[in-house]
């Protein structure tokens, strides 16, 4: 406690006035310029060297990878706060919203198998709703295992500009990229083709990942599935208030969810 008194107090009093400590002894001849600074001081804008072909490929792969994550089950977009939606843009109409990529408010977890021992016990229930605390885990896992598949997406190996180091990235080229991109994300394509009617049809085949998603919705009565209903159900876009209903029991409160 000895330090508390003298020095600390002194410093505290001085507050923010010390500006990096006195740099130069007093008698020095530096005369600070207190005049107004120039409004547009000379500034040489650094220019970027054109990207090398390898760099372009790295960037292309990075974008591709990010795109895959975005179209996968883990990417989330928080919806706008209730009442703040744009009445013109955010309203569902057939033409505008149907083909748009669906936005997830919460990550979709139950579409893949997990290695449970790598997760803390308190999250197991979240990962697999049929996992009840204290229940026999092996049964649950074996029971589920058949149905869950990892999501596998293929790789886009297109080179930007055909791998050449050129700067003529014209339209056609970029469109090629686009096409490639579309090819590779089968998943994204399929996911967004979903409409409500398909839900009932889900067979037990569990062939493809998107199949699982639907399937799980049908047979599991885990409550957090409700949140996702909104993603598929166009009706719910109108009363986007599921947040309030579902999360009412949490201390966080529905409103705070959005800020």
């Amino acid at each position: 406690m000895a330090f508390r008194g003298g020095r600390g107090g002194f410093r505290g009093g001085r507050g923010g006035s010390s500006n990096g400590g006195p740099l130069m002894p007093r008698e020095f001849d530096v005369k600070p310029d207190f005049g107004p600074t120039e409004q547009f001081p000379d500034y040489t804008i650094p220019f970027q060297d054109p990207l090398a072909s390898s760099e372009r490929i790295h960037v292309a792969r990075f974008r591709d990878h990010r795109e895959k994550i975005h179209s996968g089950p883990l990417y989330t977009v928080l919806s706008k706060r209730k009442g703040l939606e744009d009445p013109f843009e955010d309203v569902v109409t057939y033409s505008s919203k149907k083909y748009h990529r669906q936005k997830r408010k919460v990550p979709k977890l139950d579409s893949r198998p997990y290695v449970f021992e790598f997760f803390p016990v308190e999250l197991w229930e979240t990962m697999d709703s049929s996992y009840a605390a204290g229940a026999d885990r092996s049964v649950v896992i074996n029971g589920k295992k058949e149905k869950k598949r990892l999501l596998i997406s293929s790789l886009d190996t297109a080179l930007p500009n055909g791998g050449l180091n050129g700067d003529q990235s014209d339209n056609s080229d970029d469109d090629d990229d686009e096409k490639e991109k579309e090819k590779k994300s089968v998943l994204a394509k399929l996911m967004s083709h979903k409409d409500e009617d398909d839900d009932g049809l889900s067979g037990g085949d569990a062939e493809a990942e998107e199949d699982d998603e639907r399937e799980d919705e049908g047979e599991e009565e885990d409550d957090y599935q409700d949140d996702e209903e909104g993603d598929y159900n166009a009706e719910q876009y109108f009363d986007d208030g599921d947040g309030d209903v579902d999360y009412g029991d949490d201390d966080g409160g529905g409103g705070a969810w959005y800020d």
């Binding site: 883990l74 989330t76 919460v106 990550p107 977890l109 997990y114 790598f118 997760f119 803390p120 308190e122 999250l123 979240t126 990962m127 409550d223 957090y224 949140d227 579902d246 999360y247 949490d250 201390d251 966080g252 409160g253 705070a256 969810w257 800020d259």
Partner: peptide, 27 residues
């Protein structure tokens, strides 16, 4: 976390699963 992030616990748990799965969060 739930208190600070102001998001329902259920959702925080789901997010944590994602982050742990991707090794972004340790526990």
């Amino acid at each position: 976390i739930v208190r600070r992030v102001k998001i329902p616990e259920k959702v925080v748990k789901q997010t944590l699963v994602v982050l742990i799965q991707q090794h972004l969060v340790l526990h």
